[in-house]
Design a protein around this nucleic acid. Structure first.
Length: 275
DNA sequence: ATGGCTCTGTCACAGAGA
């Protein structure tokens, strides 16, 4: 069984490459993030022709996650129980005439399903933006709620994988230059502690093989030739419980998918399991 | 050097990404 995750940075912009990659790589389950696509606009026709069902959970312009599966999609979860919303801070320059607190919107950042023998979640963890941003507090709150939701799911012994764009580099070796990340999100003690708390539920980090440079980065900024210089980060993670982890036969970063014309800024991670 | 590039919604930019 082959499972993959890929932050595609807009499914609309990426659909030719995603379809080509599906036909070539043939995952049984593909978790997508940053689809940036409303559900009724999800371009799943070619995937369907290739034998996949598409489960899309989108907002439109931002966020958006999906699961494509050719081994079935059951027990669908659109978001997780207790998932917090994000309330943007009030604009201090132009305060509203009505002093009403902004409504917290629950964003499309998590979708779960049972695909054959595997329970799987496609996750797009909030970015955090900067350490003094309300978005950073939201990121930590979101991860704490995720831990609580997964504690319930993991009470069952079946194979379980939570994968996607976690927007956290688990260790300093997962960024090209730790000194470039001082006072930045993605590397803080609090974010790494949130990952440790997920692992404490019984989840294991499936670290993929790097296809080059010995660094299994999954993201490289578009700017300044960072992919070419291998200035990347490992932030797209695969967290597997013991039954799934012990079934892993291979895992790799498909950095070929980061090359060429019109790539996402993330590469897919592919995991082969013998379940 | 806090930039660089790419995406969306909307049609010249702003906002977000990480």
């Amino acid at each position: 069984m082959r499972v993959a995750t890929w932050n595609v940075n807009s499914i609309g912009a990426r659909i030719p490459r995603v379809n080509e990659w599906l036909a070539e790589t043939q995952p049984d389950v593909l978790c997508l993030q940053e689809t940036k696509c409303a559900n009724d606009a999800f371009p799943g026709e070619e995937a369907e022709r290739l034998g996949y069902e598409a489960l899309a959970h989108g907002d439109g312009r931002w966020n958006g996650v999906a699961i494509l599966s050719r081994i079935g999609i059951e027990e669908v979860g659109l978001g997780f129980p207790g998932q917090p919303g994000y309330a943007p801070p009030p604009d201090e320059e132009t305060p509203s005439l009505l002093d009403i607190a902004p409504v917290a919107t629950v964003e499309s950042r998590a979708v779960g399903a049972t695909c054959g023998p595997l329970r799987i979640w496609s996750l797009y963890v909030p970015n955090g933006r900067s350490l003094d941003s309300p978005h950073y507090a939201y990121k930590l709150e979101w991860l704490a709620a995720l831990r609580d939701a997964f504690a319930t799911e993991l009470a069952q012994p079946r194979p379980f994988i939570a994968t996607g764009d976690f927007n956290i580099a688990p260790t300093d070796t997962d960024v090209w230059d730790p000194t470039a990340f001082v006072e930045s999100t993605h590397v803080t003690v609090a974010e790494r502690q949130a990952l440790a708390e997920l692992r404490a539920l019984g989840l294991n980090d499936v670290i993929p093989r790097a296809m080059k440079h010995d660094t299994p980065y999954t993201y490289w900024d578009y700017r300044a030739g960072m992919f070419h210089k291998n200035e990347g980060m490992r932030i797209d993670l695969v967290y597997a419980n013991d039954p799934a982890f012990s079934a892993v036969k291979d895992a790799y970063v498909d950095r070929e998918a980061r090359k060429g014309k019109g790539p996402s800024d993330h590469a897919p991670v592919v995991v082969d399991l013998d379940l």
